[in-house]
Amino acid sequence: MIVSSDWLFAHLDDPNIRIVDIRGRVEHTEPRYHAEPELYDKSHIPGAVFIDWTKDIVDLNDPIPVNIAPPEKFSELMSTLGISNDTIVVAYDDHNRMFSSRLAWALRYYGHTDGRILDGGFTGWVKEGKPVDSIIHTYEKKDFIAIPNPELKRNADEVEFRSSDTLLLDGRRPEVFAKGFIPGAINVPHTSLTNPETGKFLSKEELKVSFKNVGVDTDSPPEKIICYCNGGVSATVVITALGILGIENIPVYDGSWNEWGKDEKRPKSQLI
């Protein structure tokens, strides 16, 4: 799931690899969700295409913000970018691997098995002296067939009425989690899983410690795990970290707190 900048640099000319710039940010005020195409236009990894995570891979007709795009829309986007079901996709961002992890999960959800994440993101790439350009790249259209895997996505009812042996992980920052969370959830802040100086994921042993610090034993994980956050995005950082530890096929509650927090019928807990 993770590739280094050295690996990607060595494969820049591989025709079966598509590099995706999916930089963006999340604000504390409305509008909360932003893509950053201006950064792509200014400078990006050679050969990269750009995906607007707030529009291109979400369902704009869904009242719940940033829920995943329907299969027809997702298929058309991937095809237009020259991505087939067999293309290796390497995504990068500069927001703690949130958006690249989200794209990797979305690809898996739609049956694509080789979505990867650039460790350290674009900032790490530049710091290491790797090349950039400002050429807007286009590619020959390919066939992408999106087939949803229901095992990788959960809805609100499935979360509320989950079995008692299901581990529910909330990937939000502690101060956000404290204001309101789904009862029974354990807070695994996505920022606790990466190195703040390099932007890279922690080592396997360090990841185990981060999970253990909040009461999650990744050496003997439960069979059932669900991850969520505000919009199903930072939750995928937790899923990526679990994947590094060999714990795979973890579903996302896609509506997350954007849906749950506004639904008066759903039970809620808070720490403050």
Rank of each mutant, 00 (worst) to 15 (best):
E158W: 02
I186D: 12
G255C: 06
E205G: 07
L8E: 12
V188C: 04
L77G: 10
D170L: 01
P221N: 05
E30I: 00
G184L: 07
V20N: 11
P15I: 05
R108L: 11
P150C: 09
R154C: 11
E223V: 07
I135N: 13
F99A: 04
P148K: 05
R173C: 10
V159L: 05
R102T: 00
R154M: 14
T113S: 14
F144I: 09
P174F: 13
F144D: 03
D59F: 09
I83L: 04
S164T: 15
V214C: 01
H34G: 10
N61Q: 15
I244P: 04
W53L: 13
D157T: 14
R266A: 14
W257T: 01
E264M: 00
L118S: 05
S220N: 15
R25Y: 13
T54L: 03
S134Q: 12
H112D: 13
D170A: 00
E223K: 08
G82F: 14
P267I: 02
K200R: 15
F122G: 07
N249Q: 15
G124C: 06
N67A: 14
A91Y: 07
G24K: 05
E30Y: 02
I19T: 14
P222Q: 05
K141F: 09
E175Q: 15
A241W: 00
P63H: 00
V209D: 09
L242H: 02
A104D: 06
H44S: 00
F50A: 09
L103K: 14
L39Y: 08
P221E: 06
S164W: 10
I136L: 08
L167E: 07
G124E: 04
D13I: 11
E27A: 13
S84L: 08
C227S: 01
N187V: 00
I57C: 03
S234L: 02
I83F: 02
K200L: 02
I17D: 13
Y92T: 13
K204Y: 11
Y109C: 02
G232F: 02
E205K: 09
P196L: 14
L245K: 10
G232Y: 01
V176Q: 14
T198R: 06
E158T: 07
D21M: 03
P70K: 12
D86K: 06
P31V: 05
L118F: 04
P189S: 01
I145R: 04
G255N: 07
P63K: 03
R32K: 15
I225G: 11
G261V: 04
L81F: 11
F211E: 11
R266K: 15
